[in-house]
Amino acid sequence: SSTNRSGIPPPLPSALATARHIQDLGQVSYPEGVASPRPDLNMNARDGKFRYDRDFLLQFMKVCVEKPDNLPNLEAIGLEPVDQNAMTRGGSGR
């Protein structure tokens, strides 16, 4: 949806939104200390569709922290964290 609740023009699309898909993993090298995806998983890879081992994926956890532009307002769909402290203090609330 392109509607903007506040009426402020939306910011420019993020790198996350505009970066292009890697077509050939062999073209990509990683900085020292970052492991490549396990090559055996993608020996027959076609059409830029790749499989990834968990250790490779976990390396992105601390790096990709920016909220995606297309993530909706979570409260609007009822997706809010419960306050664990309030629950233990207040019991069932009845």
Binding site: K67, P68, Q84
Partner: peptide
């Protein structure tokens, strides 16, 4: 059941993961 988001890259997955509620914090 509400659709939250569709993604097709590793980077977008983590952007989502780092900005959403983990199961331990969901309602009951």
């Amino acid at each position: 059941i509400k659709q939250v988001i569709t993604f097709d890259s590793v980077e977008e997955f983590w952007g989502l993961y780092n900005n959403i509620v983990p199961p331990s914090q969901l309602p009951q």
